[in-house]
Design a protein around this nucleic acid. Structure first.
Ligand SMILES: [Zn+2]
Ligand SMILES: [Zn+2]
Ligand SMILES: [Zn+2]
Ligand SMILES: [Zn+2]
Lengths: 130, 130
DNA sequence: TCTTGACTCTATTCTAAGTATAGACTTTAT
DNA sequence: ATAAAGTCTATACTTAGAATAGAGTCAAGA
């Protein structure tokens, strides 16, 4: 199949597919005589794997590592488990940060309920004087 | 004061200060004879305002708008209030996304508790077969 | 056969908010 | 006088793609 069909089947955009290839993440496909990319099922599966990982916010560098792992099936999977654990930590951190930010923003919003002028705006005065 | 002291007093790095100036966010300071930037209290306050906003994840473009508002104190502050409300919405969205991601990651982590080989790894098999 | 539209190609630029250099110049302290 | 610390500009790098320009290719209809 050509890149347009791969895009439809995988749900990735054409530019994203070419980007993954440039990054060395997705294997280079064969080319037709006209230099069009020509994909088979194996590359579709590669791409779906990449997409799964990205949907979990696993970075491209980390996906490289995971692909390397997949190609060495006899080794221990402890690094894979560790990678996921670290992601969970990061997500927890981020949720904490955002919850705190949310609280601050909501308090700030309450300090100016009605429409006032800029110079009377409770929000701006909170932002100005710390 | 020179840029190093401004950096210490504001908590921004020197590069960040110069970056804000290049972006037109922080006013250009006077220069000494040797072309060193020379700041006064007014610019320190400007920078602190910018830092407050950034700590609430308000973008540089939005800070530009807020600064424009501050310079027109007789106008209505409704756009300021709206900006904050929109931020609260965005933060809520992001928290939802992350909570869902967290759940997925935790379930995935449970699918491989012990150290196995890569080919037996529950995490990798979940990532591979969707 | 010609043409039109849809598809693909590479290469380059852009995004956000900084961070990190290199190479030159100035100021301060010893 | 010299060395260390501070400052200057300009440039490149970071993430994960998105967007574009200009050229080439393919299939269908007139
Ligand atoms: Zn990660
Ligand atoms: Zn207000
Ligand atoms: Zn915003
Ligand atoms: Zn495992």
């Amino acid at each position: 199949m050509k890149i347009g069909e791969l895009a439809k089947r995988s749900g990735c955009s054409i530019q994203t597919i070419r980007f993954y290839e440039r990054q060395g993440l997705l294997s280079k496909p064969k080319r037709t005589e006209a230099n069009y990319r020509s994909y088979g099922k194996a590359l579709l599966d590669e791409l779906i794997f990449i997409k799964q990982c990205r949907s979990l916010d696993i970075s491209i560098k980390e996906i490289e590592t995971l692909i390397y792992n997949k190609n060495n099936p006899e080794q221990s999977c402890s690094s894979v488990n560790k990678l996921i654990d670290e992601h969970i930590c990061q997500v927890n951190e981020k949720i904490k940060e955002l919850s705190s930010l949310k609280l601050t923003l909501e308090q700030m919003a309450q300090s100016c309920d009605a429409n006032k002028t800029i110079k009377e705006c409770g929000i701006l005065s909170e932002l100005t004087g710390s």
